[in-house]
Design a binder for these strands. Structure first.
Length: 230
DNA sequence: GCGACAG
DNA sequence: ATCTTGTCGC
């Protein structure tokens, strides 16, 4: 299987033009927020997407879902969304709750052609999304102060494509950007309101814990025996 | 031409 | 992303 990156590149530009960078969700206050994370199994043959739905602003877990599908594409920097979006859509379709906002592990508009996974998924599912990545893909930023809360704009040319924010001391910063239907200022404030003492915001931290069967999740399972979260 | 390069 | 235990530091 050989990949026509020129065609994918054109598709990215076309889709990126449909991405909305303003706040565009209901007037009702946010009640459900979700976190999404993608991983791989069986030497990459299987793609696994996990969603964690949390009540907002309490951030308690109310539902989680995991979808596993056959991997469609290899990993190519800049084209991650084509590899991860199918599994995300499959897991999204399994949800019983309908979160008004999704925090995706990965970049949103802070992408060379402005279509990171968070934007691509948000567009396909037509849901507001925010991208929270652990590493930079493109853009430049001024040195970040060492203390928690330090903030810098992530810029590409003249345009601001995201934020570089140190969520915790002695931890590498997070790269926050608009996914779809969320403005840059709003993206930052929602992420900040989802922190509970860890480097990652709760939605994404839960999605990762669930997908990787982390101790924190195992503990939650024992504490919620009769839960209908799944 | 050279280096960078989410998950 | 994934393979993986202990270990150093606050």
């Amino acid at each position: 299987m050989t990949i026509d990156t020129a065609a994918l590149r054109a598709e990215q530009l076309a889709k990126a033009s449909g991405v909305i960078c303003r706040d565009d969700f209901g007037a009702e206050p946010l009640q459900l927020i979700a976190g999404a994370d993608v991983g791989f199994e069986q030497d990459g043959e299987v793609t696994r997407a996990a969603f964690a739905v949390l009540r907002y602003p309490s951030l308690e877990l109310v539902e989680y879902r995991i979808a596993r599908i056959e991997t469609q594409m290899p990993y190519i920097p800049g084209f991650l969304s084509f590899r991860e979006a199918p599994a995300l859509l499959a897991a999204w379709a399994m949800l019983g709750h309908h979160p008004q906002l999704v925090v995706v592990d990965g970049h949103g508009r802070s992408h060379p052609r402005r279509l990171g996974v968070a934007s691509h998924f948000g567009l396909l599912a037509d849901v507001p999304t925010i991208g929270v990545a652990k590493r930079r893909l493109c853009g430049k930023f001024e040195p970040l102060a060492p203390e928690a809360g330090a903030l810098q704009a992530l810029r590409d040319k003249e345009e601001q494509i995201g934020w570089v924010w140190r969520s915790k001391v002695r931890c590498n910063p997070l790269f926050i950007s608009t996914g779809h239907r969320v403005s840059l200022p709003t993206a930052l404030s929602f992420v900040q309101s989802c922190m509970r003492g860890y480097r990652l915001p709760e939605p994404t931290r839960w999605a990762d814990a669930i997908a990787s069967r982390r101790p924190a999740f195992q503990r939650w399972l024992k504490e919620h025996p009769q839960s209908d979260a799944q």
